[in-house]
Nucleic acid binder design. Structure first.
Lengths: 135, 135
DNA sequence: TAAAACTTGCAACATTATTGCAAATTTAGT
DNA sequence: ACTAAATTTGCAATAATGTTGCAAGTTTTA
C-alpha cells in the first residue's frame, strides 16, 4: 500500500517514507511535525522527517492545513492520493474538544463574492467546533 | 489616536505600543512579527515586540490570521478596534502578486453544511488571488 | 509628587527549522 | 544478481523563532 503510493509518485521506497506514510494512513486526523517525531522516536533523524514531509507536500501526497496558531499541520486526503494530484478544496474541521483536525472531504468550500478588483484563485476554509466523535 | 485606543483598552500608553499601533494603522495589510521588527529596528527589544503583540491580541486590538505556511500574521480590523471587541468573521485575502494579506471586512464567511454529528463554533476563510492594487 | 502598578531590556534558554557533506541505501541497466 | 548511478539519510553546525525570570525604568493613580 505505502509502496504503491510512493512508486506512483516516483519516489524511492525507503523505511522512513513508509513509516511516515503509514502514520498518515492510520489516522484520519491531521498530523503536526511534532506528532510524527513523537511516533517515529529514535528511528529517524529530525532532519529526515522534515525532508520527508517536504517531499510529500511537493509530490501532492499530503497537504498543508492552515492554523490560527503557528503550528503547521499536514494531512493526507483520500481522493488526492488515489489520483496523484491535489483536490484540496475541502473544508478542514478542528475539534475544540479532542483537538484533532479532520479533512471534511465532502464539504466543498463555497465561493464568495469579492470586492471590485479582486480576482480569486484559491480558497481555504476552517471550521472549529465539536466533532462527531466528541459530541 | 493611538493613545485613545490604548486607553480604551486600559493599557498604559508607552512608546513601544504607540509605535506598533501606528504601524498597523498606517498599513491596511496584515503584518508579520518580522515586519514589525524590521520597522522598529533597534528601537525596542525583540521581546517587547512579542509581548506587545500578545497583549494586543488579548485585548482584541489586533487578531491573528491563519496562513498556509507557518507564519503568524496580525491585523487590526477597522470595526473591531472602534468597538473594542472582536468581529472577525470576515474573509482574509492574500495577494499572490504583492503578497499582502488584507482583511475584507465586508465579506462575511458563509455558513457550510457539516456532516452529521459536527457542531460548528467558529469559521475562518482565506482566499488568495490578485488584489485590487495589483490587477 | 510619591508609591504602586505595570512595562521594558537583558541574558539565558528552549524550540523549531535549514544546509552541506559524507556514508548508506535504493534503483536501474546489464 | 551485480554494479554503477542516483537518491536518501544522519550528523554537525547554524539560523531563526519564541519564552522566561528578574532588575531597572516608566507610567499611572491618588
Amino acid at each position: 500500500m505505502t509502496d504503491d503510493i510512493l512508486k506512483k509518485n516516483k519516489l524511492s521506497v525507503t523505511d522512513g517514507r513508509k513509516k511516515i506514510l503509514d502514520l498518515f494512513l492510520a489516522r484520519d486526523g491531521a498530523l503536526a511535525h511534532a506528532d510524527i517525531e513523537r511516533y517515529t522516536g529514535e528511528m529517524f533523524d529530525r532532519v529526515t522527517v522534515y525532508r520527508t514531509l517536504q517531499t510529500f507536500v511537493e509530490k501532492g501526497i499530503i497537504h498543508l492545513i492552515p492554523t490560527t496558531d503557528n503550528s503547521i499541520l499536514y494531512a493526507l486526503c483520500k481522493e488526492n492520493c488515489e489520483e496523484g494530484h491535489h483536490h484540496d478544496n475541502h473544508v478542514h474541521f478542528i475539534c475544540d474538544v479532542c483537538n484533532k483536525t479532520i479533512c471534511l472531504d465532502d464539504v466543498t468550500i463555497p465561493k464568495v463574492k469579492l470586492p471590485k478588483g479582486f480576482t480569486p484563485n484559491h480558497s481555504e476554509m476552517m471550521v472549529s467546533g465539536i466533532c462527531a466523535d466528541c459530541k
